[in-house]
Design a protein around this nucleic acid. Structure first.
Lengths: 122, 122
DNA sequence: CCCAAACTTAACCGTTTGGTTGAGCATTTG
DNA sequence: CAAATGCTCAACCAAACGGTTAAGTTTGGG
C-alpha cells in the first residue's frame, strides 16, 4: 500500500534508472524539454506506458512536469542524480569522472555530445 | 548499434544498486573482503536470500567471489560502477562531486557497517 | 568415515513491475 | 456545443523480484 513511503530517495533514483526506457527518456530530455506525446513517439509502447514511466521519473525527482494548457511538459532535473552520484563515488578508485571515457560514452549513448545542448538552466 | 550490449550492462548495474540490502552489502565490502556468512550476519534475512543478492551483484560485475576451501570470499569491484557513474555525469549540471555531501553521506551510510567480520587474510 | 560448516539450488509464494486496452477528464478548436 | 487532442486512471495480465524453507553439494575436521 504505502510501500512508496518506505523507499529512500536513493532507492527511487536507482529504481528509476534501472529501466532502459526511462534512461532513454532522460537522454532525450537532456536535449530539450518535451511534451508527453513527443517523449512517447520513438518508443514502441503505448502512451499510457510512457506516462507511467514519467510518473516514476517524477517521483524519483529526476524530471519535473508542468502542465501548460493541455500539454504537459517534461523537464530534466539532473540534481536528483547528485546523491546517487555521490553514493557511487564513495566506491571510487576512479576519483572524478574519467573524461575520456565520458566522451567516448556520450558518443555511443547520445550520438552527439551535449556540450552545447543543455536544457537552459532555469 | 553496439550500444545495446553496454546498455544491458548498465541495466544490471542499476538494477543491482536498486536494492538497499545490496547497497549495504557493497558498503560493507568497502571496508574489507568478506565471507558470505559474514556478509549475511547483520541482515534479518536468510542466508539463501543473501546468497542470491551476492549473485546479482556478481552478475552486475560489482563484486567478485573467490572460493578458498569451503569459504567464498566476496570482494568489491568498484570499476563496474564507472560506466554507470559516467552515464550519470552526462546529466551533470553538478560538475564534480560535492565533497561536503560526500562526507556527510559516508558518515550516514557507513556509520553502522560491521567491523568485527574481517577475514584474516588481506 | 561421518558430521558440521559454508554455501547454493529448487520449489514455492506474495508483491511489484511493465505492459495492455478502454474509459475518462481537461483543454483547445471548429 | 461538439469533436479532437493530450494525457491519466482503472482493470487486468504475465513476468520478474525478493523472500521463505528444505534439500543438496563441497570442504574440513574429529
Amino acid at each position: 500500500m504505502a510501500a512508496d513511503a518506505d523507499l529512500s530517495a536513493l532507492d527511487r533514483v536507482f529504481a528509476a534508472l534501472t529501466d532502459p526506457t526511462r534512461r532513454a527518456i532522460l537522454s532525450m530530455l537532456l536535449e530539450d524539454d518535451m511534451a508527453v506525446t513527443d517523449v512517447a513517439e520513438p518508443f514502441d509502447v503505448s502512451l499510457a506506458a510512457i506516462s507511467k514511466h514519467l510518473t516514476v521519473l517524477t517521483q524519483a525527482g529526476l524530471i519535473s512536469q508542468e502542465k501548460r494548457g493541455r500539454v504537459k511538459w517534461c523537464k530534466l532535473e539532473p540534481d536528483a542524480l547528485r546523491d546517487a552520484s555521490v553514493w557511487m563515488q564513495s566506491f571510487g578508485q576512479f576519483e572524478a569522472v574519467n573524461l575520456d571515457a565520458f566522451e567516448a560514452f556520450l558518443e555511443k549513448e547520445l550520438g552527439d555530445a551535449p556540450d552545447d545542448t543543455r536544457p537552459s538552466g532555469g
